[in-house]
Write a protein that binds this DNA or RNA. Structure first.
Ligand SMILES: NC(=O)c1ccc[n+]([C@@H]2O[C@H](COP(=O)([O-])OP(=O)(O)OC[C@H]3O[C@@H](n4cnc5c(N)ncnc54)[C@H](O)[C@@H]3O)[C@@H](O)[C@H]2O)c1
Ligand SMILES: NC(=O)c1ccc[n+]([C@@H]2O[C@H](COP(=O)([O-])OP(=O)(O)OC[C@H]3O[C@@H](n4cnc5c(N)ncnc54)[C@H](O)[C@@H]3O)[C@@H](O)[C@H]2O)c1
Lengths: 204, 204
DNA sequence: GGTCGTTTGTGAATGTGAGCACAAATAAAA
DNA sequence: TTTTATTTGTGCTCACATTCACAAACGACC
């Protein structure tokens, strides 16, 4: 396999593939071909083959993809073969919903720390985690946490982000609306729920 | 202006433009040029001009875009000039966070009904809304609600979706993971938070 | 060992969005 | 009125993701 630039779009589809392979793993399937997988996921078999081929030869012609091996390799590519700890900042309505969500663990993702600035919330338990003061954000590097979820009000988002980056965070999932400035070395994903919902009426 | 197909990407950027224009409206600005707007939004002035030009001539050369008029026209395009009622199905952790979120109203979006299947929840108040039985979904058409947010567990998602569509819903914001089958006449937007978070470690 | 049906991997073709350059339009100044 | 400084709108080009087509690889069966 020659080197080719890997499209961001391909990376974005990997979790979907991983979810499918994990499911097949549970069903004790040994192999799966791109056609079956495409039906399951509602997309094009060519796309799946090309996506996977960026990372080397996963499958065997005439057979398909070995379920267990491929699942493992995708986990490795996404660095999900080790549990990835994530910090959550903002223990508000959205934040508490996210902490309680069990669906992250199947990807080996773990919310390992929760921060808030509200003195009334600090020290309270949220699941098995204790809400910490935002002043303690600087300690994230020592705790080996390099990812963060941002669920604070928009006007606090930039200052919290700056602190997070200073604390060594290099991946950010941002729920607050409005632009957030981050250096190029930090990967940021924005989820603007109001904007997403605003799109729907257009298609009515 | 000649007819050109409008890219989905353009539509997806319109809420962002609308938010910026609404803000400028509040600041009593009369006009804004694509360059200023681009700085604010962190993107390319050419892109903004091209996007807006799909919908006719918004701006005046040498001056820029009239703030109020343009805000109004974008609202009209997105059909946000009238309040758009939305149903929420699944009054769980995520659902309650969404109902309480005040950020939808600035787009003229309103969560106008909440449904759940849990008898213990039905009848309870959530904000100023009363949680209704999922059996009452069929009444959505009469209540003029054509949009829905899906915040139910994955295994209930498809059956609820089918009911929603039967009830006349034509736009869907789906938070449950896994593929959801909908007819082509229905616009569906998937938000898979676990997948999004799974992408971050790759870039570490 | 040879043939046949199946499935992968990948170079090439296609389609589409983003970026660019410039002409036309506008306002303000000369 | 003419000139100059801006800024829009848009055809064109470029970059890139998706789709296609086919050769090579593989297993099964004879
Ligand atoms: N709730 C939703 O459904 C929803 C939907 C879309 C977007 N959002 C966005 O998500 C973010 C959070 O929303 P929410 O509804 O949970 O808000 P919320 O007000 O319920 O919670 C925000 C929390 O952040 C904490 N906080 C404020 N400043 C802080 C700081 N500097 N450091 C640490 N913590 C701080 C507050 O104490 C509070 O607990 C907002 O930006 C909002 O726009 C929320
Ligand atoms: N909580 C999160 O932060 C989060 C994150 C990512 C994705 N999600 C997804 O969002 C969805 C909801 O998550 P949640 O954490 O709020 O779950 P939850 O279990 O807290 O809430 C689900 C609600 O749906 C109701 N419900 C179940 N079946 C129903 C039916 N047939 N009709 C109507 N209501 C029904 C339940 O009674 C419950 O109140 C899930 O699909 C989940 O995967 C949630």
């Amino acid at each position: 396999m020659k080197y080719r630039r890997i499209p961001d779009e391909t990376i974005q589809r990997l979790p979907m593939y991983l979810r499918a392979f994990s499911l097949l793993e549970g069903e004790k399937e040994l192999t799966v071909c791109s056609r079956q997988l495409a039906v399951r996921l509602g997309l094009n078999p060519h796309q799946i083959r090309k996506d996977l081929s960026y990372f080397g030869n996963f499958g065997r012609p005439g057979v398909g993809y070995p379920v267990q091996t491929t699942a493992r390799r995708i986990r490795h590519i996404l660095k999900l073969d080790k549990t990835q700890k994530t910090a959550l900042v903002g223990a508000g309505r959205l934040g508490t919903a996210l902490v309680a969500y069990p669906g992250f663990s199947s990807f080996n993702l773990e919310i390992a720390a929760v921060f808030d600035s509200d003195p009334k919330k600090i020290g309270k338990k949220i699941g098995h985690l204790t809400i910490e003061s935002a002043a303690r954000l600087a300690g994230l590097k020592k705790r080996n946490i390099h990812l963060a979820i941002l669920a604070v009000p928009a006007d606090a988002a930039q200052s919290v982000t700056d602190k997070l980056i200073k604390a060594g965070v290099r991946g950010l999932l941002n729920f607050s609306p409005g632009r957030l400035k981050v250096p190029a070395s930090v990967k940021k994903i924005d989820i603007d729920l109001a904007s997403q919902l605003s799109i729907l009426p257009y298609y009515l």
